[in-house]
């Protein structure tokens, strides 16, 4: 996803001399195409994320469009106050690129996981949060959001191969997408978690359950305009996200169900609490937290069986 994103960014930067790229000394084998094509607009600022976000604020106020790049928790958590008081408060077109959503940095452990990034970024008014589901969509999402006047956060996965069937990179600002139709229940998945939901839906079909899947690939402080209508059509909704249970898509769906008065049961699949110090591969961690396809199938069967 990083390679596709950087490739799209190089294309944009060919047309737009305002684009400048800052990295906190990360992005080996990913950011080189930009650095080589635009050496004067590429800054490795060193391991100093607060300064990176402050620089981006000054650059953007001065008419540039800075992209700040790091592993997701370093891109967001260390300079969070700089982000809030800078690009958010001044409504500036700073692009924060956080690599590795959820457990993507697997064996690197807790310090490298991004499990609260969506909650933190969506809490800030005027910020567009983009969570591409695959690498094709990542490039397109960058192009679609290029003209936004305010801050954008991209949660980029590391997978440069897998694609979501039939998505073909489509991306619509302010809307969720129904990527798989179905009648019996609705999965609402955040970004790449849609892949586990698709695999689960395929298994559920063999059990005679017709599961639909909605993809949430962008969020703001407002609700996606079509999500209420989608939720209203299902009596049972299962949210799926590599994120803490609080503040992500599960919370978003509950907000909509409650405020719109929908008659819909919501089951949230996400990370409740980490076992202290335990790490493992992404697949292992997802399974441990009920987010693998097989665990989603178990959950769906128990939910449908109980209604």
């Amino acid at each position: 996803m990083r390679k596709a994103f950087i490739a799209a960014l190089v294309e944009l930067a060919e047309q737009d001399p305002r684009i400048v790229f800052l990295t906190g000394d990360l992005g080996y084998l990913a950011v080189e195409p930009f650095a080589e094509r635009f050496p004067k607009r590429f800054y490795n600022v060193g391991v100093a994320e607060q300064n990176m976000m402050g620089l981006a604020t000054g650059l953007a106020e001065g008419g540039m469009i800075p992209f700040v790049y790091s592993i997701a928790p370093f891109a967001i958590l260390r300079p969070y106050e700089f982000f809030r008081n800078g690009p958010v408060q001044h409504r500036l077109p700073v692009r924060v690129v956080g690599v590795g959503g959820g457990f993507e940095y697997g064996p690197n452990g807790f310090s490298h996981y991004a499990l609260e990034d969506i909650a933190l970024m969506r809490a800030q008014p005027g910020v567009t949060v983009v969570v591409p589901a695959d690498h094709v969509q990542a490039g397109n999402a960058l192009r679609v959001t290029a003209g936004l006047p305010g801050p954008v956060y991209f949660r980029l996965g590391k997978d440069d191969k897998t694609t979501v069937p039939d998505l073909n990179g489509r991306f619509y600002l302010g809307r969720a997408q129904l990527v798989v139709p179905g009648d019996d229940l609705l999965f609402v998945a955040l970004g790449t978690a849609v892949q586990q939901a698709v695999a689960a839906a395929n298994v559920l079909e063999t059990h005679g359950i017709d599961a639909a899947i909605a993809l949430v690939d962008n969020l703001t402080d407002a609700h996606p305009e079509n999500l209420t209508g989608l939720l209203a059509r299902y009596g049972c909704v299962i949210t799926v996200e590599a994120h803490y249970l609080n503040g992500g898509v599960g919370s978003l769906v509950c907000e909509i169900v409650a405020t719109e008065g929908l008659d819909c049961r919501v089951v949230r699949c996400g990370v409740a609490r980490l076992e202290s110090g335990v790490s493992g591969s992404e697949a292992y961690m997802l399974d441990q937290h009920g987010l693998s396809a097989s665990k989603l199938v178990e959950k769906a069967l128990s939910v449908v069986g109980s209604t």
Binding site: Y43, Q50, M53, G54, L55, G58, L59, E61, P66, G86
Partner: peptide, 12 residues
């Protein structure tokens, strides 16, 4: 915050 921001202004 201010010195980083001013450095960004200078760089712009």
């Amino acid at each position: 915050h201010g010195l980083s921001i001013a450095a960004g202004s200078a760089l712009a």
